[in-house]
Nucleic acid binder design. Structure first.
Lengths: 147, 147
DNA sequence: AGGCCGGCTGACGTTTACGTCAACGTAACG
DNA sequence: CGTTACGTTGACGTAAACGTCAGCCGGCCT
């Protein structure tokens, strides 16, 4: 009962690593870059729910090719410090820019997916034809246009 | 003189750079990694439509965080060498894996977009409320500056 | 008391994806 | 015929994002 105190609020570095699949080095590195700001019990880091939220966003950003430095600025937007209006304005502007980037990227991703699908379809077609009549092995002088 | 020769088929390194917004170094680097294989007129590289197609895919892949090495394997899939069936099979498998990754990534991207939008809406709401009744402004060190 | 675990701080190493610079070739321009 | 422009090949440098290793704490078990 005791060791199950409702504090999964603060967690150690190992627990964080387990939850997010990163190494301690990574978390310390992020802290050094001021992306995270865990509490301290003596020397030991204690990661809060805020750190977890930020880390989630960081890793998400990374997966889409945003640099850590870019993410750092954006993180404040998610912090919802509604008291400082100037900051908020800046954050909104930045956020909108980011959103536009992401939507553009989604469009491109869709295109890439379409293209890749087309290639896969083509490949599958060629393959089924080849296995159907295995005579047509080498000469493929089809007038197919490469687009 | 014949600057209008119909050969935009083979193009020089500068022309490539202009078309794709990269540096010569980048193209030479890609060649060294066997991602491109331009022809040669003596020493000079001549990039073909094949190189252009590949470069387009490379840059696209990069924008979505795929490493050059990953892209290199995939590029063959787009080459449509329909003669080597075993290769084709391998390529298809790889391509499908890649496609699955991209689709997963698109799902995540959509989620990220939704989240960011929510934050932006929240921010905008807070901001409009604050400007409507500016009494609830926490002690801001600086007086409000317009944008 | 001794030993191990988990965490901490440097500090240097590594990988990826190029940038930068030197030295050279060659073709055209004036 | 010199210089300007574009091309080439090394070779070394760099920024980002960690990995790795050494050395040192402070608890906790036995």
């Amino acid at each position: 009962m005791n060791h199950m105190s409702e504090a999964n609020e603060q967690m150690t570095i190992r627990q964080m690593c387990a939850e997010f699949g990163v190494t301690p080095r990574t978390l310390r590195f992020y802290e050094s870059k001021e992306l995270l700001a865990p509490l301290r019990r003596g020397q030991t880091r204690l990661f809060t729910r805020r750190d977890r939220a930020r880390l989630k966003l960081i890793l998400r950003g990374k997966r889409f090719g945003f640099a850590l430095e870019e993410m750092r600025e954006l993180l404040d937007l998610y912090d919802r410090d509604d008291t400082r209006l100037l900051q908020l304005r800046k954050g909104l502007k930045l956020g909108r820019k980011h959103l536009a980037e992401m939507e553009a990227r989604r469009g491109e991703l869709d295109e890439a997916i379409r293209d890749l699908r087309a290639e896969l379809d083509h490949g599958a077609r060629v393959l089924s034809q080849a296995t159907a009549k295995p005579m047509t092995v080498k000469p493929t002088p089809e007038p197919e246009v490469i687009r």
